[in-house]
Amino acid sequence: MKFNTDRKWLERRAEQEDRHFISVGGLISTLDPTCETEVASPPSVETTKTAFVRLLQLARRERRLTLEKLAEKADVDLAELLKIETDETFTPGLRTVHQLGLTLDLPAKKLMVLAGLLQVKDPHLQQASVRFAARSEPIGNVSPEEHAALEEYVKFLNER
């Protein structure tokens, strides 16, 4: 691209810009629920979503954190966290997943894939996610088997 290198041109454009907000309307549609069709839907990821929820639950329980404590530590909304753990159809916000990854020491980008926020075609990830989801239970104390499953799955996510 050949950008204008003339300083006077830049000065003039900057002066014009200073007098206005330059916001453009396209994405304003996302503010209006009647225009939801224009918002890209996240990919369908039922299996990884289950693994995502179980992973968060196990990682939280292993650290002996209540939902409230985790919400506080990660600086995320408690209601959203509760929704994540109880409703697998719920799609969490990107920032929330990022913060949870940081707090629970889990790879944030992989979490985003599992949560359906990022699309990556990876059959191995699908298989590992199904295996992990099947081997873990959402409630109760973390059993030695669950601990092993959690460790194996986090290792897999970190390696890829």
Partner: peptide, 8 residues
């Protein structure tokens, strides 16, 4: 508006 909604 939240940028994160458009990352897909």
């Amino acid at each position: 508006w939240d940028w994160t909604r458009k990352e897909a």
